Lab assay of single mutants.
Amino acid sequence: MWEAGIQHIELEKGSKGLGFSILDYQDPIDPASTVIIIRSLVPGGIAEKDGRLLPGDRLMFVNDVNLENSSLEEAVEALKGAPSGTVRIGVAKPLP
């Protein structure tokens, strides 16, 4: 389960991407759907250096692409398709 509020994070995407990987996970509230979760951070990558994204965070959007009900493929496309420079990411943090 995740917090209702969405944290807005801006990262600078370079030639090596944003520095994290994702996975799809069965939604605990709606078993028929999936949620997109941050799986891991690349050591020394943009996301790890920034410090705000953590494994277990739920990915909600990338720039103007809503990922609340997306497939893993759609989420990967949104991340890979984001141009270099500032990328806006929304995440919901896990409940304590």
Rank of each mutant, 00 (worst) to 15 (best):
M1C: 03
M1V: 03
M1D: 08
M1R: 03
W2T: 09
W2A: 13
E3K: 13
E3S: 12
E3G: 02
E3P: 03
A4S: 13
A4L: 10
A4K: 08
A4Q: 14
A4E: 06
G5Y: 11
G5F: 13
G5Q: 09
I6R: 06
I6K: 03
I6P: 05
I6Q: 04
Q7W: 05
Q7T: 10
Q7H: 14
Q7S: 07
Q7G: 04
Q7C: 12
Q7A: 13
Q7F: 06
H8E: 06
H8Q: 11
H8L: 12
I9W: 02
I9F: 10
I9R: 01
I9M: 09
I9E: 02
I9G: 01
E10G: 06
E10N: 12
E10A: 06
L11Q: 01
L11D: 00
E12S: 12
E12P: 07
E12G: 04
E12A: 08
K13Y: 07
K13R: 05
K13F: 12
K13E: 04
K13I: 11
G14V: 06
G14C: 13
G14Y: 12
G14S: 14
G14P: 06
G14L: 06
S15R: 07
S15F: 07
S15M: 12
S15N: 07
S15H: 05
S15Y: 06
K16R: 09
K16E: 05
K16P: 07
K16T: 08
K16G: 05
K16N: 05
G17H: 04
L18Y: 04
L18T: 03
G19Q: 04
G19M: 03
F20Y: 00
F20S: 00
S21H: 13
S21W: 03
S21M: 08
S21I: 05
S21Q: 11
S21A: 08
I22S: 02
I22C: 15
I22Q: 01
L23S: 15
L23T: 15
L23K: 15
D24L: 04
D24C: 03
D24E: 06
Y25I: 06
Y25E: 14
Y25L: 07
Y25S: 15
Q26S: 10
Q26I: 08
D27T: 11
D27N: 11
D27S: 11
P28N: 12
P28H: 13
P28I: 10
P28G: 12
P28A: 13
I29G: 15
I29C: 11
D30H: 07
D30P: 11
D30V: 10
D30R: 08
D30S: 09
P31K: 09
P31N: 13
P31H: 08
A32S: 13
A32L: 08
A32Y: 14
S33L: 09
S33D: 13
S33R: 05
T34P: 14
T34L: 10
T34Q: 15
T34E: 15
T34W: 07
T34A: 13
T34C: 09
V35A: 15
V35D: 09
V35H: 11
I36R: 00
I37E: 15
I37K: 15
I37D: 01
I37R: 14
I37L: 06
I38M: 02
R39L: 04
R39T: 06
R39N: 15
R39G: 15
S40R: 07
S40N: 10
S40A: 10
S40G: 15
S40I: 02
S40L: 04
L41E: 01
L41D: 00
L41H: 02
L41S: 01
L41N: 02
L41R: 04
L41A: 02
V42M: 06
V42I: 07
V42C: 09
V42H: 15
V42Y: 13
P43A: 15
P43T: 14
P43Q: 10
P43V: 10
P43Y: 04
P43L: 05
G44R: 12
G44N: 11
G45T: 03
G45E: 15
I46S: 13
I46Q: 12
I46R: 08
A47T: 04
A47M: 02
A47L: 02
E48S: 07
E48I: 04
K49R: 11
D50M: 03
D50V: 03
D50W: 00
G51C: 04
G51W: 00
G51D: 03
L53G: 00
L54I: 12
L54M: 14
L54A: 15
L54P: 00
L54R: 09
L54H: 13
P55N: 07
P55T: 11
G56R: 05
G56N: 10
G56W: 05
G56F: 05
D57Y: 10
D57R: 04
R58N: 01
R58F: 01
L59I: 05
L59V: 09
L59Y: 00
L59D: 00
L59M: 04
L59P: 00
M60D: 02
M60R: 06
F61Y: 09
F61C: 11
F61E: 10
F61T: 10
F61I: 08
F61N: 05
V62T: 02
V62A: 04
N63R: 02
N63H: 03
N63I: 00
N63L: 00
D64Y: 05
D64Q: 12
D64W: 04
D64G: 06
D64A: 14
D64L: 05
V65F: 13
V65S: 12
N66F: 05
N66T: 12
N66R: 07
N66M: 11
N66S: 14
N66K: 13
N66I: 07
N66W: 09
L67C: 14
L67G: 02
L67R: 01
E68H: 06
E68R: 07
E68G: 06
E68Q: 07
E68F: 06
E68P: 02
N69L: 10
N69W: 07
N69K: 12
N69E: 06
S70V: 11
S70N: 12
S71G: 11
S71N: 10
S71H: 09
S71A: 13
S71W: 03
S71Y: 04
L72N: 10
L72G: 07
E73I: 08
E73W: 06
E73P: 11
E73V: 06
E74W: 06
E74D: 15
E74R: 08
A75S: 10
A75P: 00
A75F: 02
A75H: 01
A75V: 04
V76Y: 13
V76F: 13
E77Y: 09
E77A: 13
E77D: 12
E77T: 09
E77S: 08
E77R: 12
E77G: 08
A78K: 07
A78I: 10
A78R: 05
A78W: 05
L79T: 04
L79Y: 03
L79H: 00
K80N: 14
K80C: 13
K80V: 09
K80L: 08
K80I: 07
G81S: 14
G81F: 14
G81N: 14
G81M: 14
A82S: 08
P83M: 11
P83H: 14
S84M: 07
S84H: 11
S84L: 14
S84N: 09
S84T: 09
S84V: 09
G85T: 04
G85Q: 04
G85Y: 02
G85H: 04
G85A: 03
G85R: 04
G85S: 06
G85E: 04
T86W: 10
T86K: 12
T86A: 07
T86H: 10
T86E: 05
V87T: 13
V87Q: 03
R88H: 13
R88V: 11
R88P: 02
R88T: 12
R88Q: 08
R88C: 13
I89D: 00
I89Y: 02
I89L: 14
I89S: 00
I89Q: 00
G90R: 04
G90K: 04
G90A: 06
G90C: 03
V91W: 03
V91G: 01
V91S: 07
V91R: 05
A92I: 10
K93C: 04
K93A: 04
K93F: 02
P94Y: 07
P94H: 15
L95K: 12
L95C: 05
L95W: 06
L95E: 15
L95R: 12
P96D: 08
P96Q: 15
P96V: 04
P96A: 11
